[in-house]
Design a protein around this nucleic acid. Structure first.
Lengths: 215, 215
DNA sequence: CACTGTGAACTGTTTCACAGCA
DNA sequence: TGCTGTGAAACAGTTCACAGTG
């Protein structure tokens, strides 16, 4: 029972964070790290770290801790980012362009290989800082997804256009969507969706502030 | 016991989503909405919706549901977004500029009133699509926070610069940070942090895909 | 009658505490 | 000794089911 079912969703979320901190420890020259140290870096208990990692396998060495390079490799394999993953993006507005230019993708094992936009004025232009990605019309989506075997898409269009764009992605064969539009996407359960809503995050902070500040 | 303690964090997170969907219902001309309908829009159970809202007060009307405009107003008050909140941003790179240009802020009750960057080449320039926000040097941060009484800051600098920038924000009096850098910020417990890590979100999707796809 | 608000039951997650190993 | 992996205990969050209400 160590396959990807029965694993608590919060544990999966934290796995990415462990990887991020492990890379920091590696860059600082640590060969091993204990659950306690790793937890401290993320404000988590040592027990939490051990329990989480144990869901995915037995990676630790009693008396020693976790060997940093080994654990990094194993976690990458589990997350599926040990090989480069091709990603496409729909919506080349301000946010879309910023995401394409974002340095972090390559480091995480992702490569943005295609960009799409509904706006004819943008089609045909090269996206700045993108290693030569050209904006394509939406109608090319199915063909590109098939020929390049792309499974992941980033959705960065305005709220009003999001549901329609998501349907186009799903019908083209996309299996996971990272959604930046402030809407709840209606997609089949076979398609994974992860949403980032900046407004929601700000509201969260606003609430926390009013909780313990002055009325 | 209906003050902001004892309320589960997930319930607070969902409160923002309820607000978002309520605005959709309002735009579609609904005067009232039941917990069931509101839940369906967000893939949540009706019981979940009622329980969540009940943490914050008694807003519903038996036999009727929730009156949409009334509930919107109440939720905004709870989140602290019924009045305009001034926000600053540190880091005017690709992402920072995209965030400043983001339309949604005003709709959510936030107003980006100042921008800062360490890079002297950017200082003094006006940020495009920002209603005249000029990039200021980091050393102006404390004075602006004080004179404009700003409590919330958006952090959009590269990972390497994030901790230092966060410390500058905290020392200037910022009480909540929306962090886009892929690092765990170390700040005093009195400062609220909400983080958006795009890499983590993509890894999450990648993991879900490998879970039920072909190996 | 349709719907909310809520105690009680249930399910899932985190913490504890310790056996076992290098 | 220092540390992991893991059952068992404690805690938190969700779902159930129904009394109460306009």
């Amino acid at each position: 029972m160590n396959r990807s079912d029965n694993i608590p969703a919060p544990a999966v979320r934290r796995l990415s964070l462990y990887l991020r901190e492990l890379e920091v420890f590696q860059n600082n020259g640590f060969a091993t790290v204990s659950s306690r140290r790793l937890g401290e870096a993320l404000h988590l208990s040592d027990a939490q770290v051990r329990k989480d990692l144990a869901y995915f396998g037995q990676f630790g060495h009693p008396g020693i801790g976790y060997r940093v390079p080994e654990l990094i490799q194993r976690v990458r394999r589990i997350l599926g980012t040990d090989k480069l993953t091709r990603v496409l993006i729909v919506g080349v507005g301000n946010l879309g362009r910023a995401l394409i230019a974002f340095r972090g993708f390559a480091k995480h094992g992702f490569d943005v290989v295609a960009a799409f936009d509904r706006d004819a004025a943008k089609v045909g232009l090269e996206v700045p800082l993108s290693n030569g990605v050209i904006v394509q019309p939406m109608r090319n989506l199915p063909a590109i997804v098939k020929t390049q075997a792309i499974r992941l898409g980033i959705l960065a269009v305005p709220a009003m256009a999001a549901q329609e764009a998501a349907e186009g992605m799903v019908q083209s064969g996309i299996r996971g969507i990272l959604n930046f539009a402030p809407v709840t996407l209606q997609v089949p359960p076979s398609v994974a969706v992860s949403s980032v809503d900046i407004g929601v995050h700000l509201e969260q902070l606003s609430f926390q502030l009013s909780g313990s500040g002055h009325p």
